[in-house]
Design a protein around this nucleic acid. Sequence first.
RNA 1: GGAAGGUUAGCAUAACUGGUAAUGCAGCAGUCUUGAAAACUGCCGUACGUGUAACAGCGUUUGCAGGUUCGAAUCCUGCACCUUCCGCCA
Length: 423
Amino acid sequence: MLQVAFIRQQTELVKERLAVKNFKELQLVDEIISLDDERKKLQLEWENTQSKLNASAKEIGALKAKGQNDEAETKKQEVATLKSSLQPIADRLAAVEQQLNDTIVRLPNLPSAKVPKGKTPEDNVTVREGGKKPSLHNGAVPHWDLAKKYNLIDFELGNKITGSGFPVYIGKGAKLQRALIQYFLDYNTAAGYLEVMPPHMVNEASAFGTGQLPDKEGQMYFVTEDKFYMIPTAEVPVTNIYRDELIKETDLPVKMTAYTPCFRREAGSYGKDVRGLNRLHQFDKVEIVQLVHPDKSYEVLEEMVNHVEKLLQSLNLPYRILNLCGGDMGFASAQTYDFEVFSAAQEKWLEVSSVSNFEAYQTNRLKARFKDSNGKNQMLHSLNGSSLALPRILACLLENNQAETGIQLPAVLHSYVGYTSIS
RNA sequence: GGAAGGUUAGCAUAACUGGUAAUGCAGCAGUCUUGAAAACUGCCGUACGUGUAACAGCGUUUGCAGGUUCGAAUCCUGCACCUUCCGCCA
């Protein structure tokens, strides 16, 4: 969430930037400031009263120590009236704080200056493209047909066991999935990311910390008995490693990578978009997360984009990088680059990675801070990206590399999968 | 799931017949020294809010949340976590 002090200092800038994100309720900004004014006033009132109470309690203690019990009793009477005035103030203070908090979490993050204006995906700006779209043979088919033909993935079986969107990977399909995970993790750790294996369920505080709550409650599977959320991305547990932590500046940057399955309810999705591997309720993803010095976060964002780009290049997949417009960005993000790969048989672009700088939006909720060289505590900046999401990569690998004779895999994967082609 | 004991500052320990958190180590500054260590002297305890140009100051903070009380580390209730034991178990 945004910091109140910042909203107070840069009120006009905040409104201007929120407008770029197509945020409509700009009056909330002024509401926050007046609520904060009210909070300060009440807090001062409460503190002054409390201070008097403390002093009186001390006096009573001193009087009793001297054996002046009558005077102590008189003093007690005085204190009783003072105390009765404290409770209403405390109640009002708590109410105002609650209201302030509820209001401020409704503000999305401010888009950075580099974010293009716009409302829909059509307004996203293509930064660059790479790789070459393959020309497929005449009988080329989408990946769901290939998966069936070569017995790599069984979608119907997943329907039976769980429901739609929970495919079963089989044989070479399963091996390929595992190999990709391994390859991605190796690639990330070689670039200095520490591998972690986090829990696949998180508590409410963690879901709130990275901004999934209260915004995207309906997107997550919820285990009612224990009040746990199935993670929609490794970003949630991994970033929460640093919740309520105060680290040294010399420990920066923090770089972590994790493989986890991701669970998404995807309520409301239907039709061609959800065919095959395009959109699943459970899928595998390797994530990269960084916590960095505020001065470095945009530099690091570019570094992460280059990191993901090279990974896609190594797989010989045609890709493009989009700078998302204000209206298409996530709630918590300050700037996001999406990576899309071209699915040659479906003839459409599929999102396989989303790399974002959250600046201090998540870390302010998480209270993830570092002590700077002046001894001041500052919020870290958090960033994350997929490196990479598996299903659509798998779909494109199958579709783009198909030939009459079978599917030829890119060279980097050969040692990981233990075979070179599927036929 | 059940029982007992525990949780105090970066670490370690006190206060627990209720009176406003004591001490050691660490840290910072200095004396001494060619330099360092040791010794000695002084300072500082965390975090949040408020406040300030920056300090200072003020309020809160003994795992968390409540309660009793003029006053709670201390008494009461609930919860979390740690240790040990029992039960269950890959």
